[in-house]
């Protein structure tokens, strides 16, 4: 009986330690680039979460990297499982992939996998302990997909960090993202060049407080 309780508490607290950090957002926001950057910075692994692409829906299934440990100021440590999710969209047309040069069969298959990816990304929302919403700061943030993602996180009371990615680009406008989501901290970064990644890691500690 004592061992039962011991195991129960051990499992309970072990689970609590395994924070799941989800990367969510529309396609092509830079979720996989950011996931790869985190893995490179703290695990020394390159392209650990797969390849990123200019073509939308490159990530079509959930990818998890377990036991990522990051260190902050004052010797703080944060251990989490990083979950990279497919971009959430309301429409997927295989003909757009064909127009970008993909063969028709391959495009149809990509579209089919992408629809399944969106469904599983939404289903996984319930399993997240905290979410990083990754937005392309060169694009209009007032899209319904962004609003729906944030609305669902609010409804589930999941802590959120909004990341304005691609600040290295000329058209980047963080203020527009801050105006769209004034209730959240918005951290501008470039996952590609590594700009502001130190501030991003500090923000991760804040969001899990």
């Amino acid at each position: 009986m004592i061992s039962f309780f011991k195991n129960f508490f051990k499992r309970f607290f072990a689970k609590k330690k395994d924070i799941k950090f989800g990367l969510y957002g529309p396609p092509n926001g830079g979720k996989t680039t950011l996931a790869n950057k985190i893995c490179e910075d703290w695990l020394g692994e390159k392209d650990a979460m797969g390849s990123a692409s200019a073509m939308a829906h490159e990530t079509r299934e959930i990818k998890i990297k377990e036991q990522v440990i990051i260190k902050g100021s004052n010797n703080r440590e944060l251990t989490f499982n990083l979950v990279d999710t497919p971009g959430i969209a309301t429409k997927i047309d295989y003909e757009e992939f064909v127009q970008e040069g993909m063969a028709e069969d391959e495009a149809k298959n990509r579209a089919k996998e992408a629809t399944k990816g969106v469904i599983s990304a939404i289903k996984w929302l319930d399993d997240m302990d905290a979410v990083i919403v990754v937005l392309d700061s060169t694009k209009d943030p007032y899209s319904q997909v962004n609003i729906t993602i944030v609305g669902n996180l609010e409804a589930r009371k999941i802590p959120v960090l909004v990341v304005a990615n691609k600040v290295d680009m000329k058209k980047s406008d963080i203020k527009k993202i801050q105006a769209a989501f004034p209730q959240y901290k918005v951290q501008g970064i470039s996952a590609k060049t590594g700009k502001n990644m130190d501030k991003f890691y500090d923000a991760l500690f804040e969001v899990t407080k």
């Binding site: 959430i88 309301t90 429409k91 997927i92 579209a111 629809t115 399944k116 969106v118 469904i119 939404i122 289903k123 929302l125 319904q144 997909v145 729906t148 609305g151 669902n152 609010e154 409804a155």
Partner: peptide
């Protein structure tokens, strides 16, 4: 719609494509 319904609408849309 409620936020959860919007998410469900997206899921059902994806399943109907």
């Amino acid at each position: 719609l409620r936020s959860e319904e919007e998410a469900e609408l997206i899921q059902q849309t994806m399943a109907s494509i």
